[in-house]
């Protein structure tokens, strides 16, 4: 029996299969002529970002500016860390993402397991209600959630950025599908050995769920790290800004300081780029399952 997660992992494996060594004596494929320019085109924006972040400020507003700077200059980064609160925003973003990931992994796997495996009244209603909420667009929730958060006093701290990411319908659904796919005999064996529900969940089931948990963690990292809408509507206090909100704000306050803007961009994006390069397969599996960007 294949499952959502296994399917996605298979697809991911197919998508990032290690490159095959070309056999000797065969002529190179004509597809290189198509793929190389496209890959280059896709690489340009990030290349521009790194190069501009390391450019002397004057060269970026030169006419025309060189794509490759004449010398490396860390002025963008010193300006960024010296003149702005970017360090604080980075800590804020890390706090948001860390609490989102921990909370997602704990709450969604508990709920996913409950809905997949335990028998209790209200289970069917609960799972249908949760799947139904996937259809509700964020935009519909912005106004009441803002009012709710401001009444709860969350809008002047990090709370507004954290609370929306503590759990998600997608996360519950993903974990439920995963738990439905593992054979029940393992749990029965655990029960016969005298373990209670919690022990079975913790010692038997959860260790099996690592691939699904990795997918969920990446999904949560990407969406909470990159989120702009919630911080934008619900954080007024500059001390509670996230990196994304700070960056978006730079665009109006530091419009002409391109080296600084690009350095900020590097700081906000490089962690995810590195993470992607190290865990490409898991990222692609996550992409297949969600398509959460948009």
């Amino acid at each position: 029996m294949t499952t959502l997660v296994e399917n996605a992992t298979d697809a991911a494996e197919a998508a990032v299969r290690p490159l095959d060594r070309r056999r000797k004596g065969r002529r190179p494929s004509g597809w290189h002529l198509v793929l190389a320019p496209i890959a280059l085109l896709f690489a340009i924006p990030f290349a521009q970002m790194f190069l501009a972040a390391l450019s002397p400020a004057a060269e970026l507003i030169q006419y025309p500016p060189p794509f490759i700077p004449s010398r490396l200059d860390l002025g963008g980064f010193t300006g960024l860390f010296g003149e702005t609160d970017v360090l604080r925003w980075m800590v804020n973003t890390m706090l948001v993402s860390a609490s989102a990931i921990v909370s997602h992994l704990v709450l969604c796997s508990l709920a996913g397991y409950g809905f997949a495996r335990l028998r209790f009244r209200g289970r069917t209603f609960g799972i249908f209600a949760i799947i139904g909420t996937i259809m509700i667009p964020t935009q519909l929730l912005m106004i009441p959630t803002y009012i709710l958060f401001s009444r709860l006093g969350l809008v002047d701290g990090l709370g507004a950025a954290i609370v929306p990411w503590l759990a998600s319908a997608f996360g519950i659904f993903l974990m439920r599908q995963f738990f439905l796919s593992i054979p029940g005999e393992l749990e029965e064996a655990g029960r016969i050995d005298g373990a209670n529900r919690w022990q079975v969940f913790w010692h038997v089931v959860l260790p099996l769920a690592k691939p699904a948990l990795a997918t969920l963690a990446i999904f949560t990292l990407l969406s909470s790290w990159n989120d702009l809408v919630w911080p934008l509507i619900a954080i007024n206090d500059e001390d509670a800004f996230t990196l994304q909100l700070g960056l978006a704000n730079f665009q109006s306050t530091r419009r002409t300081q391109w080296e600084l803007l690009m350095a900020g961009n590097v700081v906000a994006t490089l962690p995810l780029i590195l993470f992607f390069l190290f865990a490409q397969k898991q990222f692609v599996a996550t992409m297949t399952l969600s398509g959460m960007k948009g």
Partner: peptide, 12 residues
């Protein structure tokens, strides 16, 4: 090269 931009945020 084609997949990496997926991690870029709207602000970036």
């Amino acid at each position: 090269a084609i997949f990496v931009p997926f991690v870029a945020s709207a602000a970036a």
